[in-house]
């Protein structure tokens, strides 16, 4: 029975990432997801250090806090310095990840047997999903769908027509924070499945495929992105059942990327 739980949980995680990824790619902020996914590491470590157990809920809160912190630091640097966006992203990514690794090695050194639990966050292991994790995934998925539904207009106009959205007083800042909030949910949730390092693939690649395939109809883009993501994650999860030695994340990413190359190659964009 366990495999059905795992597949359900993985699909929910994939669907959430599929929705959020479309906004990130459309808004040209795809690498922001990469930064956030690297930045959760210190939060995970601190949460683990404080509570000494691998409770997903506590770890997720720790991860969200440090992801939020990284985004605040990014905004701060953007407002206070003349550094370019890419340099700021690299700075925040490297610093938070370094902090996380430093803590991780400290924890390892202190001799915690449960450190193996943190390892699965680095490269992902869907097989380690528990029934209660599936509930968390379901709640998060519904939350993302709900927010997406109510904020759709807002996000749409600030993404495609910033001038117009200014004229009807839709604040780009609120849209930005909404996207930020959504991506934190998606990323923190997806860590279990693909791990810190490859999380951005789950956000970017299916969304890019969907955008190339559909182009104009936003609802269709969302549907296709979610659909691709679910299939890919389910396939990857099954594969990792048969190759228990290698982590799930890389398999998911490879399958998804190959699909992307086929689509990019066959679909002429001009």
């Amino acid at each position: 029975m366990n495999i059905w739980y795992v597949l359900l949980g993985a699909s929910l995680i994939a669907a959430t990432a599929g929705i959020v990824g479309v906004w990130l790619v459309l808004r040209k902020e795809a690498l922001r997801g990469d930064v956030v996914s690297h930045s959760v590491l210190p939060g995970l470590c601190v949460a683990f250090w404080l509570f000494q157990e691998k409770n997903l809920f506590i770890l997720l809160i720790g991860a969200s806090v440090s992801a939020l912190l990284s985004l605040l630091v990014m905004d701060f640097l953007q407002e206070q310095t003349k550094l370019k966006k890419d340099a700021i992203m690299a700075i925040v990514l490297a610093f938070f990840f370094a902090l996380g690794l430093w803590l991780l090695i400290k924890i390892q050194y202190l001799g915690n047997s449960a450190k193996s639990g943190l390892d699965s966050f680095l490269f992902g292991k869907t097989a380690s999903l528990l029934p209660q994790d599936v509930w968390i995934a379901l709640v998060a998925f519904l939350l993302v769908v709900f927010i997406n539904y109510f904020m759709k207009k807002w996000l749409f106009y600030t993404t495609f027509d910033p001038e117009f959205s200014k004229s009807i007083a839709l604040s780009p800042k609120i849209a930005n924070y909404t996207i930020t909030f959504l991506s934190i949910i998606a990323i923190v949730l997806g860590l279990q499945a693909v791990g810190v390092v490859l999380m951005s693939a789950l956000l970017i690649t299916p969304a890019s495929i969907a955008i190339v395939l559909v182009r104009t109809n936003l609802s269709k883009i969302f549907l296709i992105s979610v659909f691709i993501n679910i299939i890919v994650v389910v396939l990857g999860t099954l594969l990792s059942y048969y190759f228990p030695k290698s982590p799930t994340g890389p398999w998911i990413v490879v399958i998804c990327s190959l699909l992307a190359f086929v689509v990019f190659f066959t679909k002429n964009n001009r």
Binding site: K28, A30, L31, G33, T205, P247, I252, V253, V254, S257
Partner: peptide
Amino acid sequence: IKNRTDAATGISFTFLFAVGI
């Protein structure tokens, strides 16, 4: 993908890194 540099970067390096892992 219509000059989306960031998405293109994300797709290519995650793929190669996954193959590497």
